[in-house]
Design a protein around this nucleic acid. Sequence first.
DNA 1: CCCGGAACCTGAAGGC
DNA 2: TGCCTTCAGGTTCCGG
Length: 269
Amino acid sequence: MPELPEVETIKNELLPHVKGRTITDVEIRRDSTVRDTTPEEFKSCLIGRRIENLERHGKYLVFDLDNGGHFAMHMKLSGSLWAKASEDEVPDYVKAVFTLDDGTKIFLRDPRAFARMWLVDNVCEITDKLGPEPLTKEFTSEILAERLKGKNAPIKSVLIDQVVIAGIGNMYADEILYDAGIDPRRAARGLSKEEVGRIHKAIKRILPQAIASKGASVQDYFRPSGEEGMEQFNFKVAHQKKATCSCGGPIVRIVVRGRGTYYCPNCQK
DNA sequence: CCCGGAACCTGAAGGC
DNA sequence: TGCCTTCAGGTTCCGG
């Protein structure tokens, strides 16, 4: 599922295909993909616009347009963007197609049909709802401690709350807590300063490593080339059904606040 | 404020 | 083998 490292990879790898290109056509194959406006208005606002840049905010991908407007996408569980020369084979489960002035087609592929896109006047509409970006210099251990302060919810739930930190989802939260050696059920406010420091260090290690691997292809994540990411092969606990930890103990799946959670009871206290 | 649950979706996995 | 049921997951919204 696209989390911060996957959306960052999509942004990085899609950019050379779209930067400076003008949108010549938009096809919406499933109306519910477009939010807050009609597919017709969405199309008419995009056709003829040049794409100046791409931004990632948390798990959101934002296209900057030459008229100062933007449109945003959220891949939710199974969305991916494929860039193809026009006559190439077409992926399945396509919900929207963008044609560019050099003939490139950008396909929104989404088997679960949860992905959404919408027009955005000001990027603040997106960033105002999000906590800090975890990979910035400003995101220190002290800031993390501040964000966790007073929260009685399990640390796993707090880490995936986009209001607390932007971009961490279910699978990376599991990997981060394994790396930090913290039981996912621990109350956030009960963590010591040293333990918060370990989580902070794990965030700063796991997310860049996943970006270097071009994301993790579990479920339906693909890069714009159609290739898979490689980070899933580095997972220690996430989605490791019936696996054994390096300590010799079993990886266990539990449910934390309704989310499937993998961890090692022996290594995570 | 905090929490739980439903809704949105449908391919895949599991049960019989 | 094949049919049927259940599950997973991010976000939003509603209700207690």
